[in-house]
Write a protein that binds this DNA or RNA. Structure first.
Lengths: 181, 181
DNA sequence: AAAGTTTATGTTATTATATAACATATTTAT
DNA sequence: ATAAATATGTTATATAATAACATAAACTTT
């Protein structure tokens, strides 16, 4: 059995999320790969949508992808300012975020008022997250059986879903194992 | 077949939510009953918890229960000010909200930054909502099958859930039927 | 009932998050 | 080259929430 980089990107049993590493939480994955893959994917998607991934937007996306921890708009603004000579104002950040949200390249985590890269911007884009209170990492996941129950619940009430937000806050495997008071 | 007040409080098939009227969305339910029942229930719960449901806290809860539409802290503040002679500052509101959240009497809707009365403060308190973009009503629901899939997804990742937020945004049955552009 | 303790509320200031409105620059289309 | 559309810059402001400290009300102990 040969070990490759991709071999660390396995899914837990029962989950539909295919390329999404459990090990994101344990910081043991090839994150450089995450970034380059996200940037390439972003270019493809924007090209396909006839949307312009400008220098600024690309820079914002790259900064968000520095980690799997949702990043607030103001910290992001500071990072942009640090990489630039001129000052950066809120609308600059929020417009880039708006664009990236529209293109499905990032998600907004409502419980944190923060933004994180979408790990499967091509597929379902289901917007389901496991958010660790200890390390700050947000793990995106999808599961057909879960989505079926969601759709069922909505149908029971005659409700039409336009967008959904499922955010489970707690402790990831790594942090649960580690000692945290 | 005799028609009673409670008869309107039926649940859709497949849902576990027992006393929760579909008709909340269509504004055809006995809302006075919602309020009085919520206030009585609140008193019981606080008494049981040894928590003090003060005049202010009760007033805030009553104001939140004026409708099934999540209410922002600042609108709530204005309503409090309108009912009083003195001015009301944010901490007054937020402390009352914090108390009511702790007692499980209200929920915070993250996608709206707003607060709504909990329609089953005794039971699961699952924090699942259908939020209508058109009329603003938030319908709380619970479903065992859904919760099972949620727990399953978390377990797949070795994740321990401390709190969860499921918010489905779209159109309620009534608004979907009605003409809205 | 008086004194001490805890809990709740009042008050002022500030932090955090996000958007409105308008100006300038850049890119795309004609 | 010009016009139109799109993106970014800039200033001001709206909206949401909390920190820090002062006062008041409620319970507790004697």
């Amino acid at each position: 059995m040969t070990s490759t980089k991709m071999s660390s990107h396995t899914s837990p049993a029962g989950s539909d999320t295919p390329p999404l590493p459990t090990s994101i939480a344990s910081q043991q994955h090839d994150h450089t790969h995450c970034i380059t893959s996200a940037m390439t994917s972003a270019q493809d998607i924007c090209a396909r949508n006839g949307a312009r991934l400008t220098k600024l937007r690309e820079q914002v996306l790259r900064l968000i992808w520095q980690s799997h921890k949702p990043l607030g708009a103001y910290p992001l603004m500071d990072m942009l300012a640090a990489e630039s000579t001129r000052r950066v104002a809120p609308p600059t950040v929020y417009r880039a975020l708006e664009f990236l949200l529209e293109q499905g390249l990032i998600h907004r985590i409502n419980t944190l008022n923060a933004y994180v890269g979408c790990t499967h911007p091509n597929g379902d884009h289901a917007n389901n997250f496991l958010i660790c209170e200890h390390c700050g990492v947000a793990i995106e996941f999808s599961a057909t059986a879960l989505q079926d129950r969601i759709n069922e619940s909505a149908a029971d009430f005659g409700f039409s879903i336009r967008s959904q937000s499922i955010e489970l806050v707690g402790s990831c495997e790594h942090c649960e194992a580690t000692d945290h008071e």
